[in-house]
Nucleic acid binder design. Structure first.
Lengths: 234, 234
DNA sequence: TCAAAAGTGTTGTATATACACCCATGA
DNA sequence: TCATGGGTGTATATACAACACTTTTGA
C-alpha cells in the first residue's frame, strides 16, 4: 500500500497581524495586495509556507520582508481553514500576530507593498477572512496582556510610565488611575529607572524606564492580574 | 499570470490529544497506528483534512470516530509544521485537545483502533512529534484551567466537591486545602446542589452537584484565579 | 465504638481600590 | 505666575490563606 495516496494537498499560507503603537493609538499594518485574486485590495501581509521552513519560520520571513524586523514578538493565533476562504484555490492559513516597536519599523521596505498603518477603529474591509483574523488577534492581545507583561513589546527600549499607561488604556479602551497604575507596574520589579527624562510631552518631564530583560524573561509566565475584571474588556 | 502557480501543496492533518479523568488520575487516549509509516506504534488519533471540511470539523470527525462522542470540549492547540516531521511526506498537523467524560466514552468503537488510556506519567514514546503535542496540551490545560472553569468537562453530569478537588489535584500534581477549595468553588455560583449523595467512596457520603449550564456559559470567560500561583505549576 | 471522609467558620494578612495634594518647569 | 502633566501616600474594603473541630455512618 502506498501511504497517503489519493489525499488532497493544500496550499498553506501564513498571514501576519502586525500591531504597533504610535504613542497614542494602537495601529495595524496593512498592505495593498499585489496579485490576483483581489489585487489592490487591503490585506494582511502574508506568504506561503516554503518547502524548507516550518510555519513559524515562514511568519518570521514574511514579517521581516515587510518591516525589516526580526526578533520581535510573534505568536501563532490559529488556523483559518474554511474550504472556500480563497475563491481561487483552497488555502489553509495560519494567522500569526506580531507586536513591534513602531519606531524600529523601516518605512522604505513597506513602500514596495504600499503598506499603511490603520487605527483599530478605522480598519477597512480586507480580503477573504482577514477581518476575522484581526478581530481574533485583538482579542488575544487583550487576553494575554491582562495576564502577562506583553505590551512592553510595543514600546521603544526607553519609555515612561505615562507612556505605558496610555498604551494600556488604548488596548483596553478605558482609563486607569495613574497612582494605582504606577504602583502596580513598579511592584512587578521589571523596570529599571533611568537617569534621564522624556521632555517632549510635558514641562516637568517623566523619567525613562527600561525593562530588566532577565526578570522579564523569567517572570513572563507569572500571572499579573494586571487589568481588574479583565474579562469585561475581552 | 496564473495565481498560486509553482507552489508546494501539503497534506494537512489534525491530531487529537484526548484527555479523560477516571476519578483518580488524568489519562490520555492513544491508538495503535494502523498503517505505514510507523504502523503498530502508539500514536495520537488523527486524520486528514478533507476537501469539504475545515480543520475544526476534521477534528470533530476524528474525535467521534474514536470515542463516539460529539459536542465535547475541543480546542485548537497549534500547528506542528516542521518539514520533516513525517519521514514519508511532508504533513502539516493541527493539534487539537479534547476533554471528555471518560464514562461516556464508548469502548467498543475504539477496539477497532486498539485504543488504550494511559496515565500521564506513563505515556509511551509516540510517533513523529506526538509527544511534543501531548506536552503542549498538558501545559495548555493547566494554563487554561487555572483561569477558567474548564475541568468540569472531564466530570460526569453529577459530581461531588471531593471528586472535583481530586481532579484539580491531579491536574496540578499538588494538594489543596479542602476548606478553601470548597469555599472557592461554591463562591463561583456555578454549582447546583442535588438532593442525593455519592456513597461509594465514603460512609457519610458527599452531596452531588450539577453545573448551572447557563451560568457556566456566561461566566466561562471570567478569570478565576483558581490556582494560587498557578504559574508555578505550568 | 471507631475509623474515615464530609462538611463548616474564624482570624490574620495581603492586596486592591479610592481618593487629593505637592512638584517641577516652560511658556 | 500659572497651567500642565508628573509623581507620591494613606485609609478602607476585599480577597486569600492558614488553620481545627464536628458530623455522619458503615464496618
Amino acid at each position: 500500500m502506498v501511504p497517503y495516496k489519493d489525499l488532497e494537498r493544500l496550499l498553506v499560507a501564513v498571514d501576519c497581524i502586525i500591531l504597533g503603537f504610535d504613542g497614542a493609538k494602537l495601529k495595524l499594518l496593512l498592505i495593498k495586495r499585489g496579485f490576483e485574486p483581489e489585487k489592490n485590495k487591503w490585506s494582511l501581509m502574508g506568504g506561503f509556507v516554503q518547502p524548507n521552513e516550518n510555519s513559524l519560520e515562514s511568519a518570521k520571513r514574511v514579517l521581516k520582508q515587510l518591516t525589516g524586523l526580526s526578533g520581535v514578538y510573534l505568536e501563532e493565533l490559529r488556523a483559518f481553514s474554511n474550504p472556500d476562504r480563497d475563491p481561487e484555490e483552497r488555502i489553509l492559513s495560519l494567522a500569526y500576530f506580531a507586536l513591534i516597536d513602531i519606531n524600529q519599523y523601516q518605512k522604505q521596505l513597506s513602500n514596495d507593498y504600499q503598506a499603511e498603518w490603520f487605527e483599530l477603529d478605522q480598519i477597512p474591509t480586507l480580503i477573504f477572512d482577514h477581518n476575522d483574523m484581526v478581530k481574533s488577534a485583538i482579542r488575544r492581545l487583550r487576553y494575554k496582556a491582562a495576564l502577562h507583561p506583553l505590551l512592553f513589546e510595543l514600546l521603544p527600549e526607553k519609555f515612561t510610565i505615562p507612556q505605558l499607561q496610555i498604551l494600556y488604556e488604548a488596548v483596553y479602551d478605558t482609563i486607569f488611575d495613574k497612582r494605582n497604575f504606577s504602583r502596580k507596574v513598579l511592584s512587578l520589579e521589571l523596570l529599571v529607572k533611568q537617569k534621564d527624562k522624556e521632555k517632549e510631552s510635558s514641562k516637568k518631564g517623566a523619567y525613562f524606564y527600561k525593562l530588566d530583560l532577565t526578570k522579564y524573561e523569567t517572570n513572563f509566565q507569572a500571572f499579573l492580574n494586571f487589568i481588574p475584571n479583565a474579562h469585561l474588556y475581552l
